[in-house]
Design a protein around this nucleic acid. Structure first.
Lengths: 340, 340
DNA sequence: TTGCTAAATGTAAGCGCTTACATTACGCGC
DNA sequence: GCGCGTAATGTAAGCGCTTACATTTAGCAA
């Protein structure tokens, strides 16, 4: 298993072997139509025989474009972003653009590093999640004229290009459904709120809906939790330790909601008879667990697709505007009226 | 929101502004110690004022290295690979190496395209999942002297560098546990077997264990299914439609097993009283659903970490050898003796 | 101060590619 | 077969960076 790195074949090697000029090789590679068929065939054969692949650096240098778009997501371990990112990648691939994914672990500092790393790689555009970040980040991007899109969030200001949905409004709508079932004592398991405007907006949506019904979220009815099932289960248990016990738990996302159900089982409580649980995102898991989750359906694939198209358009110098993606509430078995 | 792309500042701009040569700028950027402090300060200021970031292409061209490692995984939507890949990324980041992730949708042709795309980007090393692929792929990689590692799979041949576990042995071990509970009529929901040696090895492990107990897997006791919960549920139902009904279902991974449990609920069957279900991988989901899954625990993070280190070593020209990662069986509530 | 050595800095070539412009070949009507 | 317009191909410059080698500067001993 020796891996002696041979000097890779260059376009000159191909040109020599195919008995054409480098320009012709380049043309064939980038747009075969610009070369006569017979010539193209010779080039093709040479490329194959040599195992030639164009040198990215050389190309980037000559074209001043990398056909690459970057994305910094909070996490790749979590299903929340995976589907949207996958859709984005597929859309970009149609235009022969590669997606570079980096993850920030929900950490502002790491996010900044990843942004710099991506920019240094000469990306043509950048996708970021949410809006909350130091103004200097935006200043940096604008100064470099680097197109960027903020996803999983929507806002009607004109400061940035958004593709997403208003987390607060969706959350408010969901809460309304819970209230309509007759719940008056509601708890919430939120994601970690620091540096996470989506998580905060989801809380504030709940607060608004409660306020409209002359209710509110007491401090000990709101627990922050990291995004995994175990933590969700624990948060659920502390919420249940209070008296009177909440009859419905609104979770910042489906992973936490699944965790809450897990916690309920561990306490011997039946969802939704003893307590209702609702989530947010409608990832696969939401409909796969029992009882299936009432949740906010987010059209992740559509959002990823839109993000890709926005970035593609911006790269081409076209004018774009923010895309609002509408969410819907899906009612499933985990939400029912409170027990009497 | 105008994104007029200004010509980015180059190293010459910085050199001019700092009143030094480009060589000095380059030296300062790559290793500040090689420049006098006062000079470095001038350069630093110039860099900041201009918002300069070195052009990746130029650098790659001059150094013939990109500090980038590529990985082609079958899917990023699925939790199976996410955790390992995340760990790999973290380890690479310690050495200032970026991980480029591409997904092949479990399709050989797409995988080949992605490999080429990554190679064209000048990656210094490549991670692939599983062993099954056209020999020409390996010929291509070896011909270019590109270090690569095959992960999620282990084999004692010396043809490649592996980091993973023997899927067949792990699967055989799991099956043994099922047999020990007294099951004699066993069904299996496998992943799609074509072009997927891991999925096939898991089936063959089951077969071996059954054969050792003088049992076997009849054709209609094995169903292939794509990796999502809904399909798993459907596969489960067809398995259950047979008579006599299997008393235990072995699933190719945890997602399918979760799907099987979902199917069971839909049929009104209780797991594990009416039927046992076991999975493979031990992703988060496995312990989060009810009943929690008996499954094969794969140390994904350790595997990702090892993969990163192997690739880093190979890049540095060091000799390496395959890493075997050991799996363990975790017994949880989804497996019980068959009903009488 | 002078002369020497080592450290700091500068000069310029070249990495592999694309593309504007220059040149050559092809195919067609006569 | 000739001449022409167009399509195909070739030539060579230059993209931004690193680095071997050349030159200058600083620091120090005498």
């Amino acid at each position: 298993m020796d891996h002696i790195r041979k000097p890779n074949p260059t376009i000159d090697d191909v040109a020599l072997k195919a008995n054409v000029s480098t320009a012709t090789v380049s043309r064939f590679l980038n747009d075969p139509k610009r070369v006569r068929e017979a010539t193209g065939l010779r080039v093709k054969r040479a490329v194959e025989e040599l195992g030639y692949a164009p040198h990215f650096g050389g190309r980037a240098l000559a074209m001043n474009s990398t056909d690459t778009i970057g994305a910094v997501v909070p996490t790749i371990e979590n299903a929340i972003f995976a589907r949207g990112i996958q859709a984005m990648q597929e859309r970009l691939a149609q235009d022969n653009v590669t997606l570079l994914i980096a993850s920030s672990n929900y950490d502002t500092k790491q996010e900044w590093q990843q942004i710099q790393a991506l920019v240094a790689r000469g990306i043509d555009g950048l996708l970021l999640i949410g809006k909350d970040r130091d103004p200097s980040v935006y200043a940096f991007l604008k100064n470099r004229g680097l197109p960027y899109v903020l996803a999983w969030v929507w806002n009607d200001d004109r400061d940035h290009t958004y593709v997403g949905f208003p987390n607060d409004a969706s959350s408010q709508e969901l809460t309304k459904r819970v209230l309509e079932k007759g719940h008056t004592n509601i708890g919430m398991i939120a994601g970690v709120l620091a540096d996470n405007d989506r998580a905060r907006a989801r809380v504030s949506g709940v607060r608004t809906a409660l306020a409209n019904a002359d209710l509110s979220l007491a401090p000990d009815q709101l627990i922050e939790s990291v995004y995994d099932m175990r933590s969700g289960a624990n948060a659920f248990k502390s919420l249940m330790a209070q008296s009177p016990r909440p009859t419905a738990i609104i979770c910042g996302n489906d992973v936490l909601a699944a965790g809450a159900q897990m916690g309920a089982r561990e306490l011997g409580l039946i969802v939704p008879d003893d307590v209702s649980v609702v989530g947010f995102d409608d990832i696969d898991l939401a409909s796969g667990i029992s009882p299936p989750l009432t949740t906010v359906h987010v059209p992740h694939r559509r959002m990823g697709n839109s993000a890709a198209e926005l970035l593609l358009d911006m790269r081409a110098g076209r004018q774009v505007s923010s895309q609002r993606i509408d969410t819907t509430i899906v009612m499933r078995g985990s939400l029912a009226p409170p027990a009497m």
